[in-house]
Amino acid sequence: MGDVLAGFQTVWEFDTDSVLIRFERGIRTPKLLQTLGERRIPYEALSGVELTPGKRGTVVLRAVPRPGADPLMDAAGGQLKEAYDPYRLVLPAERETLADYYAEQIRAVLGPDAGIPAEAYLVTVPQAPLSFKAYDGKASFDGKAISFRWFWTGASSAKWKAGDQRFRIEELTGVEWRSPESRGSAGTAPKEGSAQGGPVAGGSATDAAATDAAAKDGTARNGTAKNGTARNGTGKGSPKGGGHGHLRLLRRSAEDQPAGRPDQDPAAVVFGMGYGLVHQSLPFAAAVLEAIQVSAPVPCAEGAPSPARAAAPRRDPADIAERIRHLGELHTAGLLTDDEFSAKKAELLAEL
């Protein structure tokens, strides 16, 4: 297509096989979108596109991702607020006709598999190394393994006794991410066994009864902790702000074991509104999911060697030249800075 559609805090740049979604930096842009920066979404990763009325004289153009095509959306499991949705483009109502035109253009290029789940991830996520601070520890991912380093001010006695943890990607089957901002999480912890957030196993979202629960409030008494959540007289028994989210690693060795409370599980970190924010923990969870899928063995006939993964196809030089020309137009129009133009041009030339 080669066109650009600019909305509030978001710009969609259409290509022949994908749409590049760029998020502006600014106080009105949610931090998750600022962290993502930009995302290239292949049309084969979409199942459809919607155009609906928005609030206060706006319309919303939303691309609908195929299940299993985007690890970020798989990890989120439907918990993201509308403002955090990276597939939404909000436009002034007077641009509805133009938005409808582009919606039809996207529908026209969707393939025959648009209505079925993707067999592999098609959208890339932030690459390792990644890390974030949770309430009870720091989570780090170097591309090969995830490490949890516990904080004495927040980790439970069970985690402190277990010691710092390190899990290789090969040991994992998926992740379970729960947003501290999801409904029911603010102010009070959900009851044990409540269906708040579910595991994402095997690299795709699954419907499973959530057996996790957030850490219950505990108050330190004489240097000891109630419910095993705080020690050394800190008196801290729950994440800041009352919200209870968590990131749990699903291990092959524990597949048959019931999931316990995340504040007691050495394979999970707990966070709230002030610790392990969505823009830090969700890209982390998505990167781990993608790594798990990439590391999974490729099925092959019994006795035959595992086939090598296919190399990414090289881009057509003519397509690269057209993309650079279009970037130049955006640069001239002031939509790209000098540094952004130079960086994107270098990326395109590297694909030749």
Rank of each mutant, 00 (worst) to 15 (best):
G272T: 08
D15V: 03
K161T: 02
T229R: 08
S295P: 00
D113V: 13
C300K: 10
P305I: 05
T153K: 11
F284H: 06
V64L: 12
A225Q: 13
V288I: 13
E94L: 12
V270G: 04
R88M: 11
P258C: 03
T29L: 01
R25H: 14
A209G: 02
I21H: 04
F141L: 01
G26L: 08
G163P: 08
A103C: 01
V11P: 00
S204K: 09
L172N: 06
E322I: 07
V294G: 03
S185C: 03
A128I: 06
R314T: 15
Y43H: 07
E340L: 02
H244G: 02
T52M: 11
I27A: 12
P112D: 05
P71N: 13
A189F: 09
A268P: 04
L247A: 01
P299Y: 04
D265S: 11
L349A: 04
L33D: 03
I169F: 15
D319Q: 07
G7V: 07
P313H: 04
G2L: 14
D339N: 05
G137N: 10
A201M: 13
E181W: 15
A254D: 13
R149I: 12
M73F: 11
E24W: 09
A83K: 13
G223L: 07
V4I: 14
W160Q: 11
V278R: 01
A308C: 01
A333H: 06
A134G: 11
K240I: 14
T211I: 03
R325K: 14
G242E: 02
A268G: 02
S342P: 00
K55G: 00
P92A: 09
G143E: 09
R231P: 02
P297K: 11
E322K: 08
D17V: 07
S253G: 00
A103V: 03
G78V: 12
A285L: 07
L61K: 13
D17L: 09
A134N: 03
D136M: 06
Y275H: 12
W12P: 00
P199Q: 06
F8Q: 09
P53G: 10
E119S: 11
K240Y: 11
F148N: 10
P126Y: 01
L282A: 07
I41G: 00
V269P: 03
A210E: 15
L289H: 12
Q280I: 04
G276A: 09
L51S: 04
G223D: 02
